[in-house]
């Protein structure tokens, strides 16, 4: 029994095997492979147009792979829409966060999965319970919201990002895909989000962290996969690669020359 559990834990949460994706004549992904384990932050690095967005949209069920295979906990998975992926425990926090600024935090938190309370033939939202859960979950990540009924629009960008992550975690995500969660944030808010990503990892989730900021990736990542022109350039553990080497890998040869001219690091 213990042995079975052991193998179960060793099995990667997500395996991507030689996934390709064409849009008509355009080849967006040409054979991408990567794995994500539990308690791991796997950073997906790549410059613009490297295929990061296509890959995560494929993983989250927005697109279907043209070729190749995605396995979730060992079983082949074929998501036809984002809801399928959610049901399988693969939750994606897109850049737009799927948050509606004018709606309350609670209503956003439970959007699409509102807790219902039956009264005779009618079902109503259990708003009291929803408020309590929202407040509790936000408190866990160190954000004290006095009124869960306040509009999401009144929160800062980092707080909104954290609400979106907390929502995915609360609804049972095993794998969390974060699409450039720090790209629009200032320094303090970035560190708030990165701290929370670590906390999510400690809870046993696997995290795919998409970014083109190598510093942010290096701050939380356990492994790094570099994507270039629709191909994986390799996966490295943190112990195998330095920040500089990662930067160089990601930039490729051409950009490296430009960097030298700029007399600084980006």
């Amino acid at each position: 029994m213990a042995a079975a559990e052991q193998t179960h834990q060793d099995r990667p949460l997500i395996e991507v095997k030689d996934v390709t994706k064409f849009f008509g004549p355009v080849v967006a992904l040409t054979g991408v492979s990567m794995t994500v384990n539990a308690r791991e932050v796997h950073c997906l690095l790549g410059d613009n147009g490297a295929g990061k967005s296509t890959l995560i949209k494929t993983l989250s069920g927005v697109y279907q792979p043209s070729e190749g295979e995605i396995r979730v906990e060992g079983a082949p998975a074929r998501f036809t829409n984002p809801r399928d992926a959610l049901d399988a425990g693969v939750a994606t926090v897109f850049q737009d966060l799927a948050m509606i600024p004018l709606l309350s935090i609670t209503r956003n938190f439970f959007m699409g999965r509102e807790p219902a309370k039956r009264k005779g033939p009618f079902a109503f939202i259990d708003m009291k319970h929803a408020d309590a859960v929202t407040r509790e979950e936000m408190k866990k990540i160190g954000i004290d919201i006095r009124d869960p009924q306040q509009a999401v629009g009144t929160l800062s960008g980092g707080e909104r990002q954290c609400v979106a992550i907390a929502r995915a975690v609360y609804f049972g995500a095993k794998v969390l895909i974060l699409d450039e969660p720090t790209s629009a944030l200032g320094v303090a808010q970035t560190s708030m989000v990165l701290k929370y990503v670590r906390q999510v990892r400690a809870r046993g989730l696997g995290v795919i962290f998409i970014t083109h900021n190598v510093r942010h990736a290096y701050a939380v990542g356990d492994r790094f996969t570099i994507l270039n022109r629709g191909k994986t350039m390799g996966t490295f553990a943190k112990s195998e690669i330095s920040l500089d080497a990662l930067q160089t890998m990601m930039a490729g040869d051409k950009e490296l020359q430009d960097l030298a001219e700029l007399e600084g690091t980006i």
């Binding site: 984002p82 799927a98 209503r107």
Partner: peptide
């Protein structure tokens, strides 16, 4: 104001794409 459908109405009008992504 009190049912799930109501929340879906707000969500559909607020951001249809975001709402679809969370299963509305």
């Amino acid at each position: 104001t009190r049912t799930r459908v109501g929340n879906w109405i707000f969500a559909a009008g607020g951001d249809a794409n975001a709402a679809r992504n969370v299963g509305v």
